[in-house]
Design a protein around this nucleic acid. Structure first.
Lengths: 152, 152
DNA sequence: CCGCGCGTCATACTTTCGCATGATTTTGCC
DNA sequence: GGCAAAATCATGCGAAAGTATGACGCGCGG
């Protein structure tokens, strides 16, 4: 509790010092420099924010996959309830099979052993299906595929 | 906490010293307006970048979100529907919070940025919660926590 | 026959996870 | 004030996961 007060006091002190400094220049240098400084500050603060958001945070990919919102029928569309989702995303049956195992929390090695293929093959399928889902991690892939109704 | 106060005091001192230094040069040198401006510019540009990346970071954007919600189950019964599950497993609130982020497919780094903690901290929480869930992978942890009703 | 999609596999490399360990700090409670 | 749980952070290491690239065989339609 005391610490917050202490910090608060320090912050206050610095703020006051800053204000006094600004005021000093304001009085001595008839406005121009102060205004100049403020303008520059605002300008570059904005530029910095822009830079920060635009350049230093391009980590997002906008994955737009054209999913029609209509959602027509509660009556099931006959034979392929989620198969359509799969095909619409260009995901093969085998890839979906791997994805299901991934969703169960199995490692690539375990999946390979369960399906009698090499771990490398599992990795390949994973990479492909992750790419088609716009995911970069298996957890993300699972989450997205559940959102899309690809997985239960 | 003493440490932070110390650091804060030091930073404050340095700031004041810097300001005085700037002022000194401003008074002594005639054409130091440019220097003044440049310093302010750098200062606020840095602040802006920091703000942009840390506070206003957009982070990961999901564009399509077609989820067919078919009349979800009636709202939770009692007061603490899943809180008991959590406590029974000895999982803390913070750990559950990390787990939720894990389930959303975020990486440890992203989780750390989202919660304003270091990646190492996220790892620690992950390890603990994985252990408490008897899981060895994050996908497994998510799967199990959903089975247990810990996560939706 | 030839191309193409699919499944399989490998090699090499980078990145992320997960684990162990120890430390400091914060917080809630007595 | 002091204790215990919880939260934070770091370091180091091995194991997984993920990326990139190339290759091979197989069935199928043109």
């Amino acid at each position: 509790m005391r610490k917050q007060v202490l910090i608060f006091g320090l912050v206050g002190g610095v703020l006051v010092a800053l204000l006094q400094w600004i005021e000093f220049h304001f009085l001595v240098l008839e406005h121009s420099v102060a205004i100049y400084g403020v303008l520059i500050a605002i300008l570059f603060a904005g530029a910095g924010i822009w830079l920060g958001t635009k350049l230093l945070a391009p980590r997002e990919r906008i994955v737009d996959r054209i999913v029609e919102i209509t959602t027509p029928a509660p009556p099931a569309p006959s034979a392929t309830p989620e198969d359509n989702i799969r095909e619409r995303l260009g995901i093969t049956r085998r890839e979906l099979e791997i994805l299901e195992h991934v969703a169960r929390g199995l490692s690539n090695r375990e999946i390979g052993e369960a399906l009698f293929v090499s771990e490398n093959t599992v990795k390949t399928h994973c990479s492909r299906v992750f790419d088609k889902l716009g995911a970069r991690r298996r957890t993300e892939a699972v989450q997205r595929s559940k959102e899309l109704g690809l997985l239960a």
